[in-house]
Amino acid sequence: MNPHTNLAVTEAPTAAGAPHAAAVRKLNVSFGSAHVLKDVTLAVPAGRVVGLVGESGSGKSTLGKTLVGINRPTSGEVLIGDKDFTTVHGKARQQMRREVQYIPQDPYSSLSPRRTTGQTLAEALDPRGADPVRHRDAIAAALERVKLDPSAADKYPHEFSGGQRQRIAIARALMLQPKLVIADEITSALDVSVQADIIRLLQGMRGTVDSAMLFISHNLAVVQEVCDDVVVMFQGRIVEQGTIDAVYRDPQHEYTRKLLASVPGSPEFTLD
């Protein structure tokens, strides 16, 4: 590990540590012979938006999917609140699952084409009933939160643009007021002007939403706009973490410096 690792804010969780929404401790994930996550320790503080950056294959998506329970860790702990996800089974696990919600990248495949927005959102509240009429007020409030008209509840996904669909996916993830929302490259598939809308939406929701967010992205400029803290992953390890200001102003790890210098428009970006 890099000796300069910047642990300004998101200290590794300790028994008496600051309250975290979710955390992982000494997490290892392997797929066959591929060791994707190596001894990853990270805490997402309650209510904070933490950016997770790194290149493809760095393990950032795997970390997100392990936190929601799609991937099983080879070893280590996945803490949601103070309970270890990996030791819970059956009904309790189902219950815990609802504490962490996931927003996928592609708004075109994340909504069932045959279900109205109301049905989709009602299902998040109540997986058994999923009755949009009974939950009408909650659905209207959720749509309001992502700046959509309540009439959107009666429409099908194909009646919306990509940006509107992404808003619906965000509304669905927030429906249960989970401890943590994993946003997996949620602006990458969008046009820049639509991406700007989503960024404004996320900025506007600050303070009104209690859920913490792990914002996975390869776009460092977007991370700067949306997040409080940033975690840099490289080859399955966390190489640097801290507040946005601290890391962007004074990156300690060589890879972070290279990453920041590679962004077109960055003062250090040059093609020569």
Binding site: G69, Q95, L111, P127
Partner: peptide, 26 residues
């Protein structure tokens, strides 16, 4: 394997309901 089925599973929707609500119509 589509993302809406994965999301429904994360929301805790039972497999039978996923089959009837999400898979069969599609």
């Amino acid at each position: 394997s589509s993302e809406y089925v994965i999301t429904a599973r994360l929301l805790g929707v039972s497999p039978v309901r996923i089959a009837i609500r999400h898979m069969l119509p599609n």
